[in-house]
Design a protein around this nucleic acid. Structure first.
Lengths: 223, 223
DNA sequence: GTGTGTGAAGGGTTTCACAGCA
DNA sequence: TGCTGTGAAACCCTTCACACAC
């Protein structure tokens, strides 16, 4: 009768990376509809909004629970809350930025970051001209102190935005400092223990895939 | 006897996006070895360098040709040349940047871009404070002229780095101007004709997948 | 009737294992 | 012998289709 609060379940199997990325998209779509006072959505609406199929939406969600009501669809606010909880988006994360170059500074200024609980608390660089200065309210510390500062500041996520030649040792120091999660912008395969989660953001790769798509219009597929 | 020049073949089937992204990695690895005067590599070396399996390396390459020599491996310079040709990396691409905000400026300053033949020739913005100015040697033009300028400058690739609310209309104007390839940083699903290749770079999604990985250490998988 | 939740089918990518060639 | 190239097997993800709940 009354809409029961739904608890999400934990899948027995590891869930695919594409499912997780789609959950992010669903989340953004739900925020969009909340702003517009839409109360209920169907898997069909969700799929159209993000560019997918209704079956896939239902499958993705079904890994974590039964959030909808048959014949009615999903309550927008509830589903948003459930996804936020599944993905840990209500939490605040303590983030460190290693390398205050162009990409690093773009991350500092990137708003969706801050507003979603990803707080860059400390920056590192090896350039004496930058050490001691403040960028966007965050102090730049000598990269030599990476391990200690990561540990003492209880950092959850390290963003590595240094040149290739410095990336592996930066990662090593982060790991030594106890980091469990790395967001890596350097176009190199970081060697880390298997319990460390590394997410690569390799702009060069993405760009080159555009070149491939233009060169081979008949071979390339979407994303 | 003499190492014959190998021509690459065109696959009969569409090749997966992950294969293309790995070709980029192989390419980077080969450049690395050329700098170090390594003449020959095996699929095993390649796979270790980028973090994969030897079988996958061979399979990926086999879609495009037989570039190795049984019992010997691959000639580094030849393979680099072949991959460059497959991916169109010897070409120069005419790129337009739509939106000169933080991300846009980071793209302007991003070196791997320029050095690989991706030339940002023109920028667009709607901010009167920016129009007419020059960033990194590139002039900023009023976004209203997007369609015309894209056409007249024969732009191959448009980078969309505007806020969400402006992204769809920017894409529409690019398409009207004849663009075939879009690199989209706005966290929104762009609606474009099916012959337009769109590559999404959604930082928020990537970041949220880190949050998921930290929240569910046992469920998350690599990249 | 409507739209979800899900086992089963289908399709695509990765891994295996070995033939074939240097 | 050593390592590639490649069909076949295994695996994973997506799509289908329908029972079921509202």
């Amino acid at each position: 009768m009354t809409p029961k609060p739904r608890k999400h379940r934990t899948p027995k199997i590891k869930v695919s990376d594409s499912t997780i990325l789609r959950l992010s998209k669903y989340y953004r779509a739900l925020v969009y509809w909340i702003e517009r006072d839409v109360k209920t959505v169907s898997s069909d609406m969700l799929s159209q909004h993000i560019g997918g199929t209704p079956a896939q939406v239902r499958k993705d969600l079904s890994y974590f629970g039964a959030f909808g009501r048959r014949g009615l669809g999903y309550n927008v606010a509830d589903l948003k809350g459930n996804i936020a909880h599944i993905m840990g988006l209500e939490k605040d994360w303590r983030v460190a930025l290693v390398g205050v170059g162009n990409i690093g500074r773009a991350m500092l200024e990137y708003d969706p970051f801050r507003t979603q609980g990803f707080n860059i608390l400390i920056c590192f660089d090896s350039d004496p001209m930058k050490i001691g200065k403040t960028f966007h309210g965050v102090k730049v510390v000598n990269e030599n102190y990476l391990e200690r500062e990561i540990r003492e500041n209880n950092i959850d996520i390290a963003i590595i935005a240094v040149p290739v030649f410095a990336a592996q040792s930066a990662a090593d120091n982060c790991v030594a400092g106890g980091i469990k999660c790395i967001f890596n912008f350097a176009p190199i395969n970081l060697n880390v223990p298997s319990d460390i989660f590394v997410k690569d953001e390799n702009m060069a790769m993405e760009i080159e895939s555009l070149s491939f798509a233009l060169t081979n219009p008949t071979l390339a597929r979407g994303n």
